[in-house]
Amino acid sequence: MLIAADRIWTGGALAQGMAVQLDASGAGIAALRPLGADTPDLRVALLMPGCTDLQVNGGGGVLFNADPTPAGLRAIAEAHLRLGTAAILPTVITDAPEVLEAAAEAVIAGDAPGIAGIHIEGPHIAPERRGTHEARFIRPLDARTMAVLARLRGARVPVLLTLAPELADPALLRQAAGLGVVISAGHSMADAAQTRAALAGGVTMFTHLYNAMPQMTSRAPGIVAAAILSDAWCGMIADGIHVAPEMLALAMAARPVEERCFLISDAMPSVGGAAQFSLYGMQIRVQDGALVNPQGALAGAHVDLLESMRRLMAMTGTPLARAIAMVTDLPRRAMRLPPLEIAPGMATRDLLALDEAQAIVRW
């Protein structure tokens, strides 16, 4: 099968006049080449790698915390694949140590396509900025978590750890970084000076910029301003609910290194699943496009990463090339993952075909 596209994302840029030849099985790419005078079997507006999402709490009705098993991982990954995301970091949020340990073992044991590692978000966070995370499980970074990190890295699993750096033992931070863990500051009360110290001590990323952290003011720049002015990676939620479009655009425009912002979904089980689910025994429901707990507070996001890309462009005028990079190449670079390239040998499950409205085209 020969698929031609008006534009193809390859080598970090949009190319024209190209086509993809699938192999005889249809399961892989045999060639990426100029279309020339050939007549394609299918023509689409855009071919790009499937998205890579570094923060996926759930999908398809499954919450990773509630089902930290290989089967749960497969269900979550398959739900997001149907929506255009080829690779995810399943995210285990603040919970009992046993849940974290089970989640780690599920990722190590699982063989589900699309599982690119694990994101541990909490429990080592600031209680004042816990959001919907359960307060009773919050604790300092400790030997038990360090053992989980060592176990994961010993199994060569990429690990993203979100914590409040101002509350973490600097020696443990350095130890985690030495294991190859990507450390992200989030759910934090850090001021600007504490944030700069954390960056010097091993933090290389910020989790859902603006959310679950104090907001910057003229005399208190805080973690937000320090993050924006750093050369660290910043993940952002672009559902139009968590962050105002103007603030997304401001962060992107103010970065000293342009290509250090990427999108995450913060997706919950309602993405590709039912409109309500249970979290810590509370019923979380979709209300006007937002996920809220019984108190009306946000509890994750009801959006997938491809839809986030669409909304980013619509809300901020971000050019297509930059938006594609923010859901493909850049999150992978932030996690030190190899690029997912449209090239011979790529599995077609990882190839995303879109029409002019960025809707998925099936073949």
Results as ranks from 00 to 15, higher is better:
145 T>W: 14
260 R>Y: 02
216 M>P: 15
85 T>L: 05
15 A>P: 10
242 H>I: 07
89 L>E: 09
93 I>C: 11
6 D>K: 13
31 A>Q: 14
248 L>V: 08
231 D>A: 01
1 M>E: 14
186 G>F: 03
151 R>C: 00
20 V>A: 05
40 P>W: 06
330 L>A: 11
267 A>M: 03
107 V>Y: 00
192 A>R: 09
290 A>D: 06
144 R>I: 10
340 L>V: 09
171 A>C: 09
287 Q>H: 15
119 H>Y: 04
232 A>H: 03
205 M>H: 15
193 A>V: 13
102 A>C: 10
348 T>Q: 07
156 R>W: 11
65 N>G: 10
239 D>A: 14
132 T>M: 14
253 A>W: 01
279 L>P: 08
272 G>V: 06
262 F>A: 01
305 L>H: 05
292 V>Q: 08
319 P>C: 07
286 V>Q: 06
121 E>P: 01
220 A>P: 04
262 F>Q: 13
205 M>W: 02
113 P>Q: 01
109 A>M: 04
295 Q>G: 12
176 A>V: 12
284 I>N: 00
77 A>D: 04
84 G>H: 06
111 D>G: 15
346 M>N: 08
351 L>V: 07
23 D>P: 03
149 L>M: 06
295 Q>L: 09
41 D>Q: 02
76 I>K: 13
87 A>G: 11
244 A>D: 15
225 A>Q: 07
354 L>V: 04
220 A>R: 13
32 L>A: 06
116 A>E: 14
38 D>H: 09
76 I>Y: 10
4 A>V: 05
47 L>R: 06
127 P>N: 13
273 G>R: 02
260 R>M: 07
127 P>C: 10
261 C>V: 14
145 T>G: 08
156 R>E: 15
131 G>H: 11
285 R>L: 06
21 Q>V: 13
51 C>P: 00
289 G>W: 13
300 G>M: 01
211 N>P: 09
122 G>Y: 11
299 A>R: 04
162 T>Q: 12
78 E>T: 11
125 I>E: 03
223 I>C: 08
104 A>S: 00
156 R>V: 12
90 P>W: 05
174 R>I: 10
296 G>A: 10
334 A>K: 12
22 L>Q: 07
290 A>R: 13
1 M>G: 14
135 A>L: 15
143 A>M: 11
305 L>A: 12
299 A>L: 08
92 V>T: 05
357 A>T: 09
211 N>H: 11
133 H>Y: 14
291 L>C: 05
35 L>G: 09
14 L>N: 00
360 I>N: 00
290 A>L: 13
187 H>Y: 00
118 I>K: 06
305 L>D: 08
78 E>P: 03
300 G>V: 08
167 L>M: 03
35 L>M: 02
288 D>A: 15
4 A>P: 01
156 R>Q: 14
27 A>S: 13
320 L>N: 04
